[in-house]
Design a binder for these strands. Structure first.
Lengths: 337, 337
DNA sequence: GTGAAAGCGCTAACAA
DNA sequence: TTGTTAGCGCTTTCAC
């Protein structure tokens, strides 16, 4: 293994001090009035021997790591994966790397991850917070770390965040079903106290109440397996023959619902209309093509990174926290008639 | 921001030396014959004040970071996302964190990423290598870093790797189509010199040759957009009316092919039979349900991590590189008749 | 304009 | 059994 060069090696080879090398490498030559000729000589030599500063040592000294900690609920979920991908790209363009992990919506795991990120001296955090994590996020903010939440927020903790207009999304979708003559509309969701789920529920309820229709909500345990979710929905069909439309609270439930509807032998949309949350490429090709509430993935990623970069680049302490709410789009296809 | 405690603070508060604290914290108390009572006192105090060692400083000193660099082709691709997720979980169980990034199959980007990973002192690398990266991987190995490749390998570079039996996968799928009476079977793939794509092509050709059928291969540029791929396939249909079956070389092509088939108004499998590479949850629900070659995702992740951990934990230099080839499964559904 | 030296927090050889 | 001390590679103050 070839010996890694250090700044001292460079300084010695050039018969100058490492301070000078450091200044030149950090673009402070002008300020320090170092001769152009020396600067050139150093830069050329550095390039020639392929010297790379040890960023670990640099971080230890400066306290900055140029690493962003990204905690998503589950990187294997399409929604989070595509957002993570874009966040990654944008972060790199800004000179930052990403350390990421999936929280599984598990509070304790998330706490451990935050601790690990702190140990690693990450400069900023992007998090889809599970509930119960309020104190840890507060600590982060109190200690001066930039934190941007997305997908949901924590009502009791003032932070920057980027979310979509969940309430309007489901309100609008429900209203669409109502306008198409559906009456027994069910909302299948997770039993969750997270803001995005609560708002989606509220949107559904608001539309139903406005039309004086009876609401029917099925709440499923977040940790239920895909198979058991399908089974639950099948049971539900069994006991509720008159349901004529379903709105799903998130993408995983939508997929399971599709499976259950198929298994139950129901015709879509004749027997039952369906609207999913989050759009998938394949929904378009499904028979019938699935109507879905599409979140603006690129916009979410853009806003998250911009917010974080803003915080990272300003030293001014307490600014007002920014709350960004983006619009979703109801993509009407065949499953909702 | 509350002052971060250092090991010196702990030592001073307890009126002992930081060496002692360091030994105790690193589980070397026994070995150093430090009194149980002292150990207990230190551990309790550390816990009480919530002291966390600065892992950056530790890394600088030890040269180990307990971070694994993961480079996948594209984290937003379902196949890579699910594997990344499992690798992440398994890595954490082994006390390692992951820094990841997507290569986009871009050689230069990958080189830069490897450089960044090196700067960050990652302990090991898991990579889906783009072509042209041979030298960089060789350097990594020469310099003693554990490297595990997956999904494909580099024939000219001896490394550990985990792949699937691509040749048999497509051979088997093609054979299946032949057995079902198809003759004009097309293989739609990327023009790529990567091993996995080459082998998939070979499997198809082998089966066709064995049955004395004429091969027909459509190679698509890797960087083509989804829309242009769909268009290409539509054009192809236009010019080749007699095609009665298509085998797709990877998941993205499969999705585009599905879209194109739908647009062309072809009936599946009556007019044309389809087999995709990589299975998706929704394939089962598609009409008709899509036949697919499923890769053993968990097994791949397991083997990758095990291989890497083995390398990480053994100091013995040159061991023989391990090549692991896993079986795929042809999941027969309706689209292939 | 340039250099000496302190120190970021930690580990480990060596002393005591 | 415990403490002293020398770095790991870098930045930055202060002196020349």
């Amino acid at each position: 293994m070839k010996k890694k060069l250090s700044i001292v090696d460079i300084a010695n080879s050039l018969n100058i001090s490492k301070t000078t090398v450091s200044f030149i490498l950090n673009g402070r030559a002008q300020e320090k009035r170092i001769s152009e000729e020396l600067v050139k000589r150093v830069l050329e030599y550095v390039k020639e021997v392929g010297y790379k500063p040890n960023s670990l040592a640099k971080s230890l000294r400066t306290g900055k790591s140029h690493i962003i900690g990204l905690l998503v609920q589950d990187i294997s979920n399409h929604f989070f994966a595509t957002i993570a991908r874009q966040i990654e790209d944008l972060a790199y363009k800004n000179g930052y790397k990403i350390i990421y992990s999936s929280t599984d919506n598990d509070t304790q795991k998330t706490q451990e991850l935050i601790t690990m990120f702190r140990e690693r001296h990450v400069d900023g955090y992007i998090i889809t917070p599970p509930d119960g994590i309020e104190d840890d996020i507060s600590d982060l903010i109190r200690d001066g770390f930039p934190v941007v939440l997305f997908d949901r927020y924590l009502p009791s903790v003032p932070t920057d965040y980027v979310v979509v207009d969940n309430l309007f999304s489901t309100y609008n979708a429900t209203q669409y079903l109502i306008d198409n003559g559906h009456k027994n509309i069910v909302f299948i969701t997770y039993s969750s106290i997270q803001t995005q789920m609560i708002e989606r529920l509220e949107g559904y309820e608001k539309a139903m109440h406005q039309s004086k229709l009876k609401t029917s909500v099925t709440e499923i345990d977040f940790y239920a397996s895909a198979d058991s979710i399908v089974k639950l929905i099948l049971d539900f069909f069994e006991q509720n023959k008159d349901v004529d439309a379903i709105l799903f609270g998130n993408n995983h439930l939508g997929k399971c619902g599709l499976k259950a509807t198929r298994k139950a032998g129901k015709r879509v949309p004749e027997d039952i209309a369906l609207i999913a949350f989050d759009d998938y490429e394949l929904f378009e090709l499904y028979t019938p093509a699935v109507t879905a509430i599409a979140q603006p993935i690129s916009e979410i990623a853009d806003n998250v990174i911009n917010l974080l970069m803003e915080r990272l680049n300003t030293t001014t302490e307490e600014q007002k926290k920014q709350h960004i709410t983006l619009a979703t789009e109801l993509i009407v296809r065949d499953s909702s008639k």
